[in-house]
Design a protein around this nucleic acid. Structure first.
Lengths: 117, 117
DNA sequence: TTGTTGTGCAACTCTACGGTTGCAGATTAC
DNA sequence: GTAATCTGCAACCGTAGAGTTGCACAACAA
């Protein structure tokens, strides 16, 4: 059948971790802030949030585990910086779903149109 | 300071709901399947999943609440179809974070480069 | 009408996770 | 050296949500 043979961007195991990390608004805000202000430590970040430093540390850990941050140690402090490469995977997944659906719509429209048109 | 005055794509309340909905792998798979096979009912979908129909119904409800699906009733059955417009918001957020970080990197590089270069 | 099938609602369990506090271990400053 | 400060680890609590089951209701088929 005339199924669009668009190759799926499927087996991206990272995508799962990225979306899970991005699900929490606090984590998205952290990513937002880090992308705007550059690498900061957990202690510095915690000052801007209504939660404890430990909570922030956990969120940073989740973001780092998803590959969205990388931690760099300088002496006794650890600065977290954004890594954008993984964002692309999630973005690609979104685009893929959208595109496949658009394909379906086009196919559907073609099917609905009378043959002699 | 020479902060890039890129206008933020900020106050998108939908983005929050979309990411939360996309956080669950089952829901992403549902979206995947619906985008590939077209509108289906909860009962039909449930056959492909290791969970009960009720669980699928809940997921579909979450996706619909986030504006990612729309439910259309025909007689006694309800078919769920993809709505792609909201995906754009999430995608834009990802792109925005990435772009702002890239701006920072450029600014940083410029700052590190010796003035007389 | 009666039987069948699909949907919707409610109550319940269980786990994951966001949050906390407390303390131990490093590292810097004095 | 000692004191101050930052990070890391562990135990604990509470709630949201993913899952279940059971049943009532609506719509189609006979």
């Amino acid at each position: 059948m005339s199924a669009p043979d668009r190759r799926r961007t499927r087996p991206e195991p990272h995508v799962d971790a990225v979306f899970a990390a991005l699900a929490d608004p606090t984590r998205r805000r952290l990513l937002d802030q880090l992308s705007a202000e550059g690498p900061l430590t957990a202690t510095e970040l915690a000052a801007s949030y209504p939660v404890s430093r430990q909570a922030v540390v956990k969120h940073l850990g989740a973001l780092a585990a998803a590959g969205l941050l990388d931690a760099e140690r300088h002496g006794r402090e650890v600065r977290y910086g954004v890594v954008t490469s993984r964002l692309g995977g999630a973005s690609a997944w979104l685009a893929d779903v959208g595109a496949r659906w658009d394909d379906r719509l086009v196919a559907l429209e073609r099917q609905l149109r009378p043959p002699g048109d």
